[in-house]
């Protein structure tokens, strides 16, 4: 009996360890007997490394294992093993808020953060990032660039043959952030559905992540990518010549990247230090250059009206029935092929 239990545990451990990470890297300052800190994140290492390095410079006694996966699988992995991670960072505000609501986030009473940018003293926002159109610069040369969704619809309709198969957006079934953007877009305006219809008619290609979409736009495989994280695009300085990033002016859907300390962390000290460090670096008045992530806007004063509010209503679209309905609607709009 004991053998079987051990076997099951061993198999489970192997499966757990063999999770399919997009990126995985251990950052250490080389100090002996460093405290291991497991950070589960949806943010690419390229964007987050400066933050990690500055953390290590200040806290050399910590060894950070940085695990990157998509927002949707991040939620799945963490729920499956809430003991296994110390800090969780994700851009999917709704999934993060649901984790906090479900009691997975440690309450930190003495972390001071603007009320708008934190929920329940357990979930803290540290960036403000807008969803953008990313366009292939060459394809739009000499044309007036669309600045609204209506404008984008007009451009796509005007030259369907040019854009067929060359527009891309998030596959909201696979991407938590894509789902968040889509649902918030749908809340804001019916134009989202018309745009989705139009993209569906043009045999839109669906992506799991912003990075690939940006690369495809740069390479000319895509001409238009919709609802891409502008911050990721802007961070790709090397592609600056090929792509054009446009913040829609009609309703710029803006999300805040959030971080929390796992409720069951075994190293609350370093985990809270890490969280504080991230918040301090990303506060608008930190004034330090060189970090790829945009800071938390309006941390000190004005709230951006289009920023998705960090409130329990975010779990609305995570409801199974609502999600099923929404995805069915979306599928029928975006997938029009045989």
């Amino acid at each position: 009996m004991r053998f079987i239990v051990s076997l099951i545990l061993a198999v489970w451990a192997v499966t757990a360890a063999a999770q399919d990470w997009e990126e995985r890297q251990v950052f250490a300052s080389g100090a002996a007997q460093a405290t291991p800190l497991r950070v589960l994140s949806s943010t690419d290492i390229a964007l987050f490394e400066p933050v990690l390095q500055s953390f290590l410079a200040r806290y050399p006694g910590v060894e950070v294992e940085y695990l990157v996966t998509s927002t949707a699988s991040l939620d799945t992995y963490f729920r499956a093993d809430p003991d296994g991670y110390d800090v969780v960072i994700s851009s999917a505000m709704d999934l993060q808020l649901k984790l906090a609501n479900d009691g997975f986030a440690l309450r930190l009473e003495d972390v001071s953060h603007p009320p708008r940018a934190q929920w329940r003293q357990s979930l803290f926002a540290f960036t403000t990032e807008a969803a953008a159109f990313v366009l292939n610069r060459a394809a739009f040369a000499g044309q007036e660039l669309p600045t609204t969704r209506q404008g984008l619809i007009r451009v796509l309709r005007a030259a369907p043959e040019t854009f067929r198969g060359r527009v891309g957006t998030y596959d909201i079934r696979a991407s938590g952030l894509g789902y968040l953007f889509a649902t918030q877009d749908a809340r804001a305006s019916e134009t989202f559905w018309r745009l989705t219809e139009v993209m569906g008619a043009l045999e839109a290609r669906l992506y799991c992540c912003s990075g690939e979409m940006i690369e495809d736009v740069a390479a000319g495989r895509l001409l238009v990518a919709y609802n891409v994280l502008g911050s990721y695009a802007a961070a790709r300085g090397d592609l600056g010549g090929q792509i054009e990033i446009i913040q829609p002016v009609d309703f710029p859907t803006t999300m805040m990247r959030t971080v929390f300390v796992a409720e069951r962390t075994k190293v609350p000290g370093p985990a809270v230090d890490f969280l504080r460090h991230v918040l301090a670096l990303q506060s608008a008045d930190a004034g330090e250059e060189g970090y790829a992530l945009p800071p938390l806007a309006g941390a000190t004063g004005e709230a951006l009206p289009s920023t998705i509010a960090l409130e329990p209503a975010l779990i609305t679209y995570l409801d199974q029935l609502k999600r099923k309905t929404f995805i069915r609607e979306w599928e029928s709009a975006i997938i029009q092929g045989p």
Partner: peptide, 12 residues
Amino acid sequence: VDFPYAAFSMLS
């Protein structure tokens, strides 16, 4: 049950 966003936002 396609309930409105307000159903939960009113609970903030």
